[in-house]
Amino acid sequence: MARTRGGAPRSSAPYLFLTPAIVLFLLFLAVPIGYTVHLALRRTRVSGLGLGKGSRREVFVGLDNLRAAVADGELWAGWLRVLGYGALVLVVMLGLALLFALLLDSAYVRLARFSRIAIFLPYAVPGVVASLLWGFLYLPSLTPIGGIDFLSASAVTYSMANVAVWGGTGFNMLVLYTNLRAIPRSYYEAARMDGASELAIALRVKIPMLVPAIILTTVFSIIATIQVFTEPTTLRPFSNTISSTWSPLMKVYRDAFVTGDLYSAAATSLVIAAVSLVLSFGFLRVVRGRAFGESR
């Protein structure tokens, strides 16, 4: 309709088309983030007994909450726990996913379609259900595997990592496998002509070609690990060994909904977001040369 008025017809169109995206971005990303920052800078101050009207008001406290969040030893202990858990999950899950993808792509495997679905299936099980299923298998009096206390202090990290590996391997396997299928078969023929064995092709042709996909799955997995919440929260009632602040995100949940301190929760969320950014982008920066330098 701008065109009929004879104004600047070509320059208004892009804005119009962009509007939905901008509005969605503002409503569902910028505003919530802004509100989180707003909350993180404030706190309620109570006077006297804190009962009755007007005894409670919100005040601006500057960086106090953020400072307290960063200085909280429990948060960093949580990071350490998650780091150990994450290292375990990343290595085992991505290792298995790569192994399965290569096996499925190799010429030798029978029942490839069935195996692919079987490995992928756990990903379709919601995290809470998976944790409950495994939780029941872990409980000493219910487990079919005797002799090990899966929920003891020394074993609980492995037990939780196991749930994550079980649930996540299939998805990562599928991403890697799909990428493998996209590699032109002629490369393999060339390698075979040069006398390469299947193993050599896997190690020296397929894996190098897969590097961008491996990096992608690693970044996704790092982010998922930083945000680990479902497994420990679901398993917590079963055991004495998982505290309410086991992972950083659990601390946010506890602050916001158990102890009713939205302000600290907001501040801790910002710290977690910062750490996620640093870790993911840090990882990308380290591997950027390898991955995208080659593929471009």
């Binding site: 309709m1 701008a2 008025r5 600047a8 208004s12 804005y15 509005v23």
Partner: peptide
Amino acid sequence: MRTQRLAIAAAL
């Protein structure tokens, strides 16, 4: 220019 802004405003 004005029409442009108006269009955006209306859409918003």
